[in-house]
Design a protein around this nucleic acid. Sequence first.
RNA 1: GGCCCCGUCGUCUAGCGGCCUAGGACGUCAGGUUCUCAGCCUGAAGAUCGCGGGUUCAAAUCCCGCCGGGGUCACCA
Length: 476
Amino acid sequence: MTVRVRFAPSPTGIPHIGNSRTALFNWLFAKHYQGKFIVRIEDTDRKRLVPGSQEKIMEILDVLGLKEDESYRRGGPYGPYIQSQRLRLYQKYAHQLIREGKAYYCFCSPERLAKIRKEQQKKGLIPKYDRHCLHLSKEEVEKKLRSGQKYVIRLKVPDDKDISWSDLIQGKITINTVNIDDQILLKSDGYPTYHLAVVIDDHLMKVNYILRGSEWISSTPKHLLLYQAFGWQPPKFGHFPLILGPDKSKLSKRHGAKSVLDYIEEGYLPEALVNFMAFLGWNYEDNSAILTLEKLVKFFDLSHIGKSNPIFDRQKLDYFNREHIRRLPLTELAKRLKRYLPADYPLKGDKFSRLVELCQPRMTNLKNFLSLTEFVYPQKIVEIKDLTKYLKAAEVREVVKSIRQRLAKVDKWTLPSIKGTIEKEMKRSGLSRGKVFMALRVAILIRPVTPPLFESIALLGKELTLQRLDVALNRN
RNA sequence: GGCCCCGUCGUCUAGCGGCCUAGGACGUCAGGUUCUCAGCCUGAAGAUCGCGGGUUCAAAUCCCGCCGGGGUCACCA
């Protein structure tokens, strides 16, 4: 049987990295078994809808390379793939349950519900619906319905029944129905709740594996109950551990949990994000393995997903980013870098490529390129504090001065000639290279951390090099 | 609070009764690199396997209790 999994986000904002990991795991699982990855938009909460977030969700999938097989934009045999376009279905099934006596109308107002909840909490009881409307007579229900009174449809949850399933990740889990409220299936606005919609859609879309975060564990019995009520074969469930923020609570916007798009903006490679997310809860070999999506598909399996919650570790992300940057072909890296550079970036063509090459092993983040190569901007000026630190000593200044003189006489501004000139002056001075080179670096390249000195000077050009040296010598 | 789950170096983890005086990785630190490092090389520190009991010739691994952490209990998903 073909594996069919789904990623079912709600367009209530831009998903953070934990949500995207859910998509990744589902996609990897599907692809590992040559199955289908379905994207379904769960927009049944009209109040929390955020315009534009649906597009962002898809953009994230695109950026990460998680191509879906079925979705609202790609189509598929079981559409529509947006829940708000499937309202009639949910209503039909909800009423079917009513007819079969497995669900009932509830006319209680939100105010009444809030009140009884409050009272129960005050008494230390589990907040639970008191089934007031379950005991309404048929006539009373009819009457209320006819008078147009607003209603919801609730599932009749059995009183004391163990619901258990063998979770693909967590092992056997059993939850007794005393802990489960009579779930609302259809809201008074005619929209289904998550529980109803998810079960109907997963069944209709032939989803046979549900992989989601463990915040859904306690909802699973509700879903199982619904499958039972409908007489449908339930899918297999797997709940993976939640990603925790640095404070060890569930990763959320509250932590400033960012989206994939934010990380891209900050200079992270999609490849690095994928690699990083994969290891959040899953492991393979030494879990510092640099893996592409392709390899991940090959190696991914549920048995290596742990049960304990991993903590989001920015340094690990940085590590993966660094490693993936290094593995990028130069032309590709140059291409990716463009997005972070201003349009008037001074270096172009071969010189730019060479600079990229010099910086590649030194970047943890694509944005590092900007600071590493700040010297290419003609108008940039060195900071005084750096200058005084490295150019203070009189003997260093002397050598720098004479190097400046010599460089002025260089005709062909090439790496060998620059190197030769400087080396010759160094030998004459007898000073240690460290001191002088740092002085030159700061004076010419503006910052104490740069790509290799000679190469950078060669790329900078004669004119700017001399100009910078003059400025440095005069200002100090 | 009820219910469910989890608990091995700071972090991610390996471990599935003897190969464990607990392995790797990220990070940290130190030394080196006769040019910087956010680069490269080498090395080090770091976990009484949450605690306490059991079972066993033998336990990080099995059982029980406790403690700690997380999740969840909406006309949100």
